[in-house]
Computed example of a mutant assay.
Amino acid sequence: MNIPNPSRRRALLLAGAAAFSFCTAATAQTYPSKPVRVIVAFTAGGTTDILARAVTQKLSEKLGQPFVIDNKPGAGGNIGTEMAVRAAPDGYTLIVNSVGPMAVNQTLYKSLPYDPLKDLVPIVQIADVPNVLVVHPSVPAKTLAQFIEYAKARPGKLSYGSTGVGTSSHLSSYMLGQRSGMDTVHVPYKGANVLNDLLAGRLQFMFATVPSVIQHIRAGKLRALAVSSEGPSRSLPGVPTVAEKGFPGFSAGSWFGFFAPKGTPASVIQLVNKTVNDVLPSLQEQMVREGADPVGGTPEQFGQFAQREHEKWKAIVRDSGASID
């Protein structure tokens, strides 16, 4: 076997490093050279889909290639998430995902064939979207305190809807009931159909994402009592937080951001991160009007945030007893 001398070996290593650097730089310069598929693990028209479409339109304009939304709903977001996990890590499949598939479902579902926080890499957080506690106008309460008093005087009589067992809307109501002593009935739905029954008065209240109900609040069809975020929502000025109304530490909002399959080139992650951060200011007015608070930041910040959310929701899901086979 012909073993090169030390000088020759160093030269080969330097040449290899240079070639790797060149390839990385070339990827950054040429990406994207064809359309990019952006998976959304939920139906068209939902909060994840609306935010993804707003941002991908700007990405298409800035980077000169279509960023095409591909809705793959089902199993609480697990179907679309697994598709992203299994996709080639070449930068041409990304996913805009949310708190459920990334931070809740690992604990909620008895067995997932992947680990979203290990098999997907964070790119950038798009937005925080608080949940808002809304009641049907037939409920006389005008404040959170009045609502809790009203509910506690009617144990087992009030029903709340959610977009499914173990979703943020379900667990937000569970947390409030646990901490306030309310005895209410959970009625899970598949997706956004819950709003129809809430608007019709067949349900009395729910925690819903602000974008899904903000127009109904403005029209007087629903009454907003409190938001579930740590701080006030720019989209609903004047609506207090649950935390400031007697439940310190109460935080149960939703969030959304870009992820990529593990192994996606760092140059792609950096380019998409930078471009999203560049375009978010131009979307701020629209996003706040529709119920979302733009975030941005680095991949590292987003990854650390997602890990903290996983730990928080793991404890809440286990305490609630929620489970899906």
Rank of each mutant, 00 (worst) to 15 (best):
M1K: 13
N5Q: 08
A11M: 13
L12N: 07
L14W: 07
L14H: 05
A15Q: 11
A18E: 02
A19M: 14
C23M: 14
A25N: 01
A28H: 06
Q29V: 14
K34V: 03
I39F: 08
A41W: 07
R53Q: 15
K58P: 01
L59P: 00
I69A: 08
K72W: 06
P73D: 00
G74W: 09
G76N: 03
G77Q: 02
G77P: 08
E82A: 03
E82V: 12
A88G: 01
D90Q: 06
T93S: 12
V96F: 09
N97I: 12
V99L: 11
G100D: 04
G100E: 10
T107G: 06
S111F: 13
L112F: 04
Y114G: 09
D119W: 04
L120E: 01
V121Q: 07
I123V: 15
I123E: 00
V124P: 06
Q125H: 07
V129M: 06
P130H: 06
L133T: 04
L144W: 03
Q146I: 02
I148K: 03
I148R: 01
A151L: 05
K157G: 00
G161Y: 03
G164V: 01
T167C: 07
S172Q: 09
Y174A: 05
S180K: 01
M182R: 03
D183G: 00
H186P: 14
Y189G: 11
N196K: 15
L199E: 11
G201T: 13
Q204S: 06
V210R: 00
P211E: 06
I214N: 05
I214R: 03
Q215I: 07
G220K: 13
A224H: 08
S233D: 05
S235A: 15
P237K: 12
P240K: 01
V242D: 05
E244N: 10
E244F: 00
E244C: 00
K245Y: 00
K245A: 12
P248D: 01
P248R: 09
G253W: 04
A260H: 08
K262Y: 03
T264N: 11
P265D: 05
A266V: 13
I269D: 09
Q270W: 06
N273R: 05
N277Q: 05
D278N: 13
D278Q: 15
M287Q: 08
V295W: 00
V295I: 15
F302V: 05
E311P: 00
E311S: 13
A315Q: 14
R318W: 01
D319H: 13
A322C: 14
A322S: 15
D325W: 05
D325F: 09
